[in-house]
Design a protein around this nucleic acid. Structure first.
Lengths: 224, 224
DNA sequence: TACATTTTATTAGTTTTTTCACAAATAGAT
DNA sequence: ATCTATTTGTGAAAAAACTAATAAAATGTA
């Protein structure tokens, strides 16, 4: 039994890094690496080694002094944490340009996440298939989602219709939504909604580039 | 002259919210709203009112007690901060499924950000056009980027080739990169690189949904 | 086996971010 | 012109996240 079961909740900042850790552990495993030290791992993923050790420590004493961490064991632990042995069945709502692209990729390199079904309201696309996924009518969302055992939903609906689409999704009992429409929508408190907004990301990046890190540009950066 | 010029740097957390603030101020303006109180705005964008006031305060005394904030004035200020009057000319590298989708959208609703040119290494796509943007050979990146006055680059290259593509970009003097390939790449310190990884985002979301917010699910959530 | 080296896990300390709560300022009513 | 109700801006407190530094533990070498 690891610490998490008995103790304090995992810090949000830590939780956000877990998928990154897991991805790189898998990469290491594929390269046949059996053991990894926090400092080496730090170089790889560009997260300070102290942060890595602190993060890992929330899940128990995973490493051994003077040795480092055993990669297969770490993978076992993080796999459990992310419950990767359970297939996550995803639905996609909104089959526009972006939706189509996500369908075509369908988490290619990841055997744990799969877009099972897609929805739209446009009669033109309903009934067609993309990458072997049939586009269904959004009106049938609840029914199909239940039948397919959907865990989480990605919405790539235009802002204008996002609230309506998300109401439908929430009504079906789904509690995890990844929303590409930048406008904030109203959801009940128990629903977890995450926003991905390209424009905002890019504006933030440019803002940092222009203001926040001028110091770096002048060559006054402190050491890595 | 506002505070930012004279005083302390803007906190990172604040900087990240600026584009969100700006977007919603524009929405308000379009609806003809002239004044907004931090509490109302808070409801809209789902950021605590105290955070909003604190954030705004970094740029001077923008509001008036007992009144709130003047929307046109706020827009003026944030427009200046984000330098939205200057067109940001973006390049896109990697014209796969996702790259194509971004090209087709091309920040439709935003008059400040424009994808000016796109690059790939596949002879099949080089020379073709998507949404009036011609796909150029990545080998000509530096030359074209200079001619086009590119400020920032979006990379939608497969992980395997991301490092190479980004080396090319960095070599041309670009310092702001938004990278959709999830693997960490090495860049000089003065380069600002931001990662967007759908898989990670979704895994994080699901992790939170399964672990972190069980409390909410049990109906024990604290008040909004 | 003993010992010098390595590396974790953790304690303590620092910085950053968020939140509280209220004086001061202003609005708008009378 | 006065008064009451609002709402800001900000000190101060609290919470969260990060970093430093080190004792303890384990490694691996002689």
């Amino acid at each position: 039994m690891n610490k998490q079961d008995q103790n304090k909740p995992i810090p949000k900042a830590t939780a956000k890094r877990i998928p990154l850790y897991f991805r790189y552990l898998r990469t290491l495993q594929e390269s046949g690496v059996i053991r990894i030290k926090s400092k080496e791992f730090s170089q790889m993923i560009q997260v300070p080694s102290a942060t890595i050790r602190r993060d890992f420590s929330h899940f128990g004493e995973l490493g051994r002094s003077g040795y480092g961490y055993d990669v297969p064991y770490l993978i076992e632990v993080f796999s459990e944490i992310l419950s990767t042995q359970v297939e996550k069945r995803i639905a996609l709502v909104g089959v526009g340009n972006l939706g189509k692209a996500l369908l075509k990729n369908n988490f290619r390199r990841n055997e744990n996440l799969t877009i099972m079904c897609a929805f739209d309201s446009d009669p033109e696309v309903i009934g067609t298939c993309i990458n072997c996924v049939e586009i269904k009518n959004i009106h049938d969302f609840s029914e199909v989602a239940k039948k397919e055992g959907i865990t989480a939903v990605i919405t790539t609906v235009p802002s204008k219709h996002a609230q309506q689409a998300i109401d439908t999704i929430v009504a079906s009992g789904i509690t995890a939504i990844l929303n590409f429409a930048p406008d904030r929508v109203k959801v009940p408190e128990h629903v977890n909604i995450q926003y991905i907004d390209l424009t905002t990301e890019l504006q933030t990046l440019i803002y940092f580039d222009e203001h926040v890190s001028q110091v770096n540009k002048l060559g006054l950066a402190k050491k890595a």
